[in-house]
Design a protein around this nucleic acid. Structure first.
Length: 941
RNA sequence: GGGUGGAUAGCUCAGCGGUAGAGCGCCGCCCUUACAAGGCGGAUGUCCAGGGUUCGAUCCCCUGUCCACCCA
């Protein structure tokens, strides 16, 4: 077999992405194509959802990046001044944890280092390792403007954060308050409600214990039994509650529980809200300082709030004999001690939910603390309105409900964090008069009393606070005159995962409206969660994490397993990998990965990424490559040039492909505009494979062999035009391969000068094709070619069924009714058909086809709309009977369905007339076909 | 406890009032000078169950079952 490149072929036989991708990316970037021109009326802007600076690219990023890049490239080609702003966020807790781990390895801690040195150390880390995700985004082909890359801790963005804080404070929308908050004992910071995740269906224990009861005079009145899943919290109990209507405990109203460990009488109160008579014993212990419901109860009854925990999760002095113990140690100790005192009343298994920190995973402790909050209600109202009145559209629309629900039930947002890495809270406490100074510049004296004895708030802000300002802080706010802010705000689309709808999207909308007075974007596009092919969430523990870069560059099974193992996969995860990917991954390339991610419906909440699908799109890349290879080969030595205008066409196949191109371009444009990138990419995929490659390229072969030079020239012109156009259409989705090919397509010089950079032609700055400008719908050509395709397919089916290999030339005798389109087309295109089928066509008088066996030896017959044909030379009548029988069955079934409809009077009366007519026509056609098949079958005997 | 989404071919999923689709897999045949990462042909479905609306339901409505996610 000949090697691919031993002849004058222009391209190798297979497309290998690796080399081309790096080359073109550098070319685009160095050509300045990623930066907006700053010219033109229409702008199109996307702000990237900033990944954590500690992050590495995962499938979620890959997915979002692809969507954003398609939208950006598409609009750029459409002539918009397109800007996609990249950036990262400082990920307070995550980053601090990363650097603390480094320090631990060096045998030190941040406390030993001191705050200032630690923060400097984090910056150092950021400078050396924080750019990794940018490199990975580049690998995805992202056409973002790196010259505008932003980091939430950049000086200008920090100014924005401080300005926002101060303004909100001045407006009374930020306040300091003492509340029950979520405390993460591991990272030792407070968390917002959103950062607490509930772990469901945890097998827990409901522990029952007795409180000795005394009355107001101190006389023993027996005991009450309470149940709890957190026995240690009893050290903070300040009441026992029963339901006011509960007869069982009516005699205890006004009595007290005698605390077994600390010298305290806890009142027995009645509360209908807290107590569910049917649950447990009907008596509830009340710990206002460590439980949200109890906290509310405490407020209703004016109960004392006793905090029993230190910030590190150990018990404080209020823990009495248990002080100093870690919370879970204390729990066991409390139980043991109660047992010893004879107050334990057994325990039951209990299914419960546990609040866990999104960051550290530890069980979150509700604790009373003084923190900074943003008042949400005044900000939520306008954010609700913006979606209600359509200034912002959320897609898929289902999420609108969720968005409303959250905003309508919103709680104030706790924004202070006890971390060192982040934006300092600009509050300064006067030690002299206790005034809180919140200022844009660090104050030297108290604004109220003039004292210089000020202490800065040690806390920093929630990272999401800075992210909420992202769409305008990245453009230059608070400088209202910043050129970018004026030109590119509001942005158009915001594309992200639904998991941060509340964390980020809703907050950006609130802040955008509040500070800019205008929505930050007009469309929110929410993508689903990328999972493994079983639909399970990717996780390190499960070992099913697929690294996009491995998909792009390929990897061995060994490397996959090693990586998963290092990341902490369980053995089941490793065996899943081995079973699912025994060969590892091939080098699929970025374009294939992008097409795969695009192919999933945006309606779906899950994107169960299948590597088989990636392989399918890798194959598609290769298909496109080879189509180009064919075209370029056929164009060689000719003067056919792409010029951006659809060439005139007279040959049927040429007219047809230009018409199909029109459909494909319509579908692609509508798909992208409507955020149905699956439809858009699917339309182009099917056009290239099913129509261009499967039919047109084959049809072009005989045309290019024509003796008529005009036909040859026309076909070449169409060939180069269709190829060049489809490359432009596909470019937003498959940027690399399209550029690689496009650069080699012969183009008219003026045309190739491109949209914006006359000196550096590139497909990425060419106009995006449309049906109106680059193709030509032609219904007549389509109808004609459809008939021809049906004829060819039937003939092939006969061939396959009767083991007539393609190499064996056959004769096909046909007849049709004069005046039928199919007959006319077959006559005029006979040569084309002969080539495609490797057959000789003979038109016969209809009578001859009425009894083919009388005229042709062992003939197989087929019937397609308006045509009958016989293929002599079939050896096996049994097979032919079988084939005809099968087809007859199918026709009969279809006819049955239609017949049933037509005999139903209500259908004929009530269904639209058009449909009834069509049904009648279809039925008539099928009926004719049925008779033909029956006759043929009868003749076979 | 409240809410949202899903259940369609062996697998992963589109579709959505008018005779059920794709990719992969499966079964034949074929190295056909663009492509074996390919070509040609073929098989495959109680569209979760039960009711209702309709001339007509996989699609709309109700009820139920199971799964996923979110909120408390």
């Amino acid at each position: 077999m000949s090697d691919a490149n031993d002849d004058e072929t222009l391209l190798p036989k297979t497309y290998t992405p690796a080399e081309a991708e790096a080359r073109w990316y550098d070319f685009w970037e160095s050509s300045g194509f990623f930066s907006p021109t700053g010219e033109g009326e229409k702008t199109y802007t996307i702000a990237i959802p900033p990944p954590n600076v500690t992050g590495t690219l995962h499938m979620g990023h890959a997915c979002r990046t692809t969507f954003e890049d398609v939208l950006t490239r598409y609009h750029r080609m459409k002539g918009y001044d397109a800007l996609w702003i990249p950036g990262t966020d400082h990920a307070g807790i995550a980053t601090q944890v990363v650097v603390e781990r480094l320090l631990a390895r060096e045998g030190t801690t941040r406390h030993e280092l001191g705050r200032e040195a630690f923060v400097e150390r984090v910056w150092e880390w950021k400078r050396s390792s924080g750019g990794r995700i940018y490199e990975q985004l580049r690998k995805m082909g992202s056409s973002c403007d790196w010259t505008r890359a932003r980091f939430t801790m950049d000086p200008d963005l920090s100014v924005a954060v401080r300005e926002a804080f101060v303004r909100l404070y001045e407006q009374g929308l930020i306040y300091r308050g003492t509340r029950l908050v979520n405390w993460d004992v591991e990272t030792q910071t407070v968390l917002s409600d959103l950062e607490v995740e509930t772990q469901e269906n945890v097998q827990g224990e409901l522990f029952e214990m007795a409180y000795p009861v005394v009355d107001a005079e101190g006389n023993a009145r027996g005991e009450v039994v309470v149940a709890t899943t957190r026995p240690e919290t009893m050290l903070g109990d300040t009441a026992l509650a029963v339901h006011p209507d509960d007869e069982r405990y009516a005699h205890l109203h006004g009595c007290f529980g005698k605390h077994p460990f600390v010298d305290r009488l806890v009142p027995i109160i009645t509360d209908a809200e807290l107590v569910d008579m049917a649950f447990g014993t009907g008596v509830v212990k009340v710990t206002p300082a460590h439980d949200p419901n109890d906290f509310a109860t405490g407020k209703r009854h004016g109960l004392e709030e006793i905090n029993i925990l230190n910030l590190d999760g150990t018990l404080n002095e209020n823990g009495g004999p248990f002080a100093g113990m870690e919370r879970f140690v204390a729990r066991r100790a409390v139980k043991a001690k109660l047992d010893e005192l004879g107050l334990a009343r057994g325990s039951k298994k209990h299914v419960m939910t546990l609040p866990r920190s999104q960051r550290s995973g530890t069980i979150v402790e509700p604790m009373i603390s003084t923190q900074w909050f943003v008042k949400m209600e005044p900000l939520a109202g306008p954010a609700i309105a913006a979606v209600e009145d359509g200034r912002i559209q959320i897609l898929p629309e289902d999420w609108t409900k969720t968005y409303f629900h959250w905003l309508r039930n919103i709680q104030d947002w706790c924004i202070s964090r006890q971390l060192w890495w982040g934006h300092a809270i600009p509050a300064f406490y006067c030690q002299a008069c206790e005034h809180v100074n919140v200022t844009r510049e660090d104050p030297s004296a108290c604004a109220k009393c003039g004292s210089a004895d000020l202490v800065a708030d040690p806390d920093v802000l929630d990272t999401w606070f800075s992210s909420a300002l992202w769409p305008f802080s990245t453009l230059g706010w608070p400088n209202e005159d910043a050129a970018d802010l004026r030109r590119y705000y509001p942005t158009q689309d915001l594309e992200t995962g639904y998991d941060i709808l509340f964390f980020w999207v809703a907050r950006m909308i609130m802040m955008g409206l509040h500070f800019m007075g205008e929505v930050p974007f007009s469309r929110v596009l929410l993508a689903g969660l990328v999972t493994d092919e079983r639909g399970e969430k990717m996780s390190k523990v499960k070992g099913n994490v697929i690294d996009p870069l491995d998909v792009i560059s390929g990897t061995s099974l060994d490397a996959l397993v090693t990586k998963a193992e290092a990341a902490g996969s369980k053995p089941e995860g490793l065996s899943y990998l081995k079973k699912t990917y025994p060969e590892g991954f091939a080098e699929y390339g970025t374009d294939a990965l992008r097409m795969t991610l695009l192919s999933y419906s945006p309606q779906s909440r899950r994107i169960a990424l299948s590597l088989k699908r990636v392989e399918g799109y890798r194959n598609f890349s290769n298909k496109l490559w080879n189509a180009a290879r064919y075209a370029l080969m056929k164009l060689e030595g000719s003067d056919a040039r792409a010029s951006g205008a659809a060439p005139a066409a007279s040959a049927l196949a040429n007219r047809w492909i230009l018409s199909r191109l029109a459909h494909a371009l319509d579908a692609a444009g509508e798909g992208v505009d409507g955020y149905r990138l699956d439809d858009a990419s699917g339309a182009l995929y099917h056009f290239v494979w099913d129509e261009l490659c499967d039919w047109y390229l084959e049809l072009s072969k005989p045309l290019l062999e024509s003796e008529d030079p005009a036909v040859v020239a026309e076909t070449r012109a169409v060939l180069v035009h269709v190829l060049e156009t489809v490359l432009r259409a596909l470019h937003p989705m498959m940027p690399f391969i399209t550029e690689e090919i496009w650069q080699r397509v012969p183009k008219d010089t003026a045309y190739a000068a491109g949209l914006r950079r006359a000196d550096t032609p590139s497909v990425m700055v060419m106009p995006y094709p449309t049906a109106a400008t680059d193709a030509r719908a032609d219904a007549e050509a389509e109808a004609a070619l459809d008939g021809l395709k049906a004829f060819i397919t039937s003939a092939r089916s006969v061939r396959a069924e009767h083991d007539l290999p393609r190499s064996q030339r056959v004769a096909i005798h046909y007849a049709g009714a004069e005046g039928e389109l199919a007959l006319a087309v077959l006559r005029s295109e006979a040569r084309l058909v002969q080539t495609l089928l490797n057959a000789d066509l003979h038109e016969e008088p209809a009578a001859k086809l009425d009894d083919p066996s009388a005229h042709f030896a062992h003939a197989a017959i087929f019937v397609v709309a308006g045509l009958r044909a016989a293929v002599p030379g079939v050896i096996d009548p049994a097979k032919e009977r079988e084939r005809l029988g099968r087809e007859l069955k199918r026709v009969a079934k279809d006819l049955g369905v239609l017949g049933k409809k037509l005999t139903n009077p209500s259908f004929v009366d009530k269904a639209p007339a058009e449909l009834v007519e069509k049904t009648k026509r279809d039925a008539a056609d099928l009926d004719a076909k049925k008779s033909e098949l029956e006759a043929a079958l009868a003749r076979l005997g």
